[in-house]
Structure formats: C-alpha cells, structure tokens
Simulated assay, not measured.
Amino acid sequence: MALVAGDMEAVNALIAERMRSGVPMIPDLAGHLINSGGKRLRPMLTLAAARLSGYSGQDHVKLAATVEFIHTATLLHDDVVDGSDMRRGKAAANILWGNKPSVLVGDFLFSRAFQLMVETGSLRVLDILSNASAVIAEGEVMQLTTTNNIATTEDTYMQVIAAKTAALFSAATEVGAVVAGLPEEKAGALATYGRSFGIAFQLIDDVLDYGGTSETLGKSVGDDFREGKVTLPMLLAHARGTAEEKAFWTRVVIPTQQREGDLERAIELMSARGALADTVEAARRHGEAAKQALGGFPAMPEREVLTDIVDFCVERAY
C-alpha cells in the first residue's frame, strides 16, 4: 500500500467523485461499503501491475477505480443473494437499506465502471473488463447450482471460484500491462498471475470461514456453512468421511436441517480429515504459480510487492 500510496489517493478521490449523484441514497449506500475499510486489494494490483509494466500516464487510476466499482457492485449483489447480515465488520447494506436499493446501487456502480473504462479509449481494456464482469456473473449463477449440493465435484467448485473471484483479479492485473502497451505475452503473464492469485485468495477465504475469526473475515464465521455453500474444505471432508460422516454432510448442506452444534462438528470433521490443511496447501500451489508468472519481469519493488502479497494473503490463514 505504501508503494502505490500516491496513486491510491488519486483512486480514492476519483471513486468519491464518481459516486456522487443527485439521488442521496446512492452515495450514502455505496459509501457505506466502499468507505468501510476494505483492503482495496484489487485496485492496488492494477496500480502495481501498471507500474511494473513501466506505465507513466494516468489511465491506470481510472482502471483501478473501475475494478473497485465492479468489485463493490458484486458484493452488494452477493449480500442480497446470500441474505448476509455483515460485511467488513459492519451491518451489510441490504440490512440497513433493504434488498432493492442494494441491487439498484450495485447496478449504478457497474454503470460507473463502464463509463470509466470507456474514458481510457482502449477497446482492449473494455474487452478485458467487460468480459470479466460477464464471467463473474456466470460464476455467481454457477454457485447457485452448487449450493446445497454435496454431489458437487471439485472441478465444478474450481470453475466457480475461477469465475466469481479469480476473473476480476486476472483482469485487474492484465489491464495494467495493456494500458502500458506491453506485448501480449507480458499482458498474458500478468493475467495468469492474477488468476492464480485469485484462486489462492478464495481458497484461503473458504478455509477462514471455518477456521478464522469474524475480525479477520469481516463477516460472521460459518456464513458459508449456514448458507449451504459447498466449498473445497467441505468437499474434501465429505469425500474422506465414513458413512456416518457422509450422512452428516448430506444433512447439514440443507440449512433448514442444521441443528445447534453442527458448525462445531463440521469444523471438527474438516480438521480430522485434513480438509482445511489440504485446502491451504492447494492455495499455496496456486500462489506459487502466481509468483512464477512474474518471472519474465525485471527485479524491482513492484515485482517484489506482487510476490510478497501472495504470501501475505495465503498465510493469513494463520
């Protein structure tokens, strides 16, 4: 964050400017989430990738704000779909304003994101970010088909997180290279970095839902479990379990059939079957792939930061 602090100040100022509206509820609701202490991880990746690519203009600021608007819009929509009551340690917007305003303000932020993309004048940037937006939506719909379905395969689960999480990480880093005019090979390497990092990030998020704290997550521990979301720790524990344990997972994946103490039992079984540890290990493998993708870039502070942040995010499981 210190490395891109100056650029991030410009991003935050642009976000505040583009959140303005003659409809007071829009900046109030959007600002509740955008100003709630989020890590700004995705826009930071865009800024660092642009600097790593040798970019010296100002369009990377617009692209970083675009990425944050897309991310925030998806969070507003996700919280409505999931019925979440907490986000970043605060009451979720859908709890304070209701579902309809949350969805509509999310739409407003998507629209602002597309306005910013167009202002860069790059069709390639527009292609990358608009495609990422479509893929994210596909991932969220795909996740609906896996929720409450313990028969979900690991391959399907990985497709879901590659779409709903990794697609935006990938786009965030790739556009940093594109706006700098780097060749396709280098832009592709940064896209690979972002995709692999995004998968690692989501795997750790899924572990933290069972082994983290509300302070670490910014939401309630066990939310995925209570919503019947099927994630890798659950799939591994189910696959390795006894007949009695498989019956437990089949029952608890349906929220209305959950009982008091089921979350604690789920965590116990995941630990006993090595599901949490193996999910962390999978995150480490994807993290290593992300770092290797940077091999063609020169040694400089931006490359070191992009490498270190992968380790930081993976090790937050501890």
Rank of each mutant, 00 (worst) to 15 (best):
R124C: 05
V175N: 00
S84A: 11
L144H: 00
S102V: 09
R51W: 01
G54L: 02
T173K: 00
K219V: 07
N35D: 11
K39C: 03
G212I: 07
S36C: 15
W249C: 11
I150R: 03
G83T: 02
V252S: 02
E68D: 03
E244F: 05
N99R: 14
T146Y: 07
L306C: 12
S111D: 11
A177C: 11
E288C: 02
P233Q: 07
R112S: 12
F69A: 10
A299D: 13
I136E: 11
S220T: 15
E315K: 09
A10I: 03
E281A: 10
F169H: 10
F114A: 02
L217P: 09
F197T: 10
A289R: 11
A2S: 14
F108C: 03
V280L: 04
L47M: 08
R226F: 06
V125R: 05
E281V: 02
V81M: 04
R88D: 08
G188W: 00
R259V: 13
L232H: 13
Q143P: 02
A73N: 11
D224Q: 04
G218F: 04
A243N: 14
P301M: 05
S214L: 01
G176K: 03
V135E: 06
T120Q: 08
T216R: 07
Q257I: 03
R285C: 09
T66D: 00
Q257D: 15
M8F: 08
N149K: 12
E154Q: 11
A272E: 15
G98V: 03
L14M: 09
N99L: 05
E304H: 14
T256R: 15
I95N: 10
T213S: 09
I267T: 13
G98S: 12
R195A: 06
G6H: 05
S111K: 10
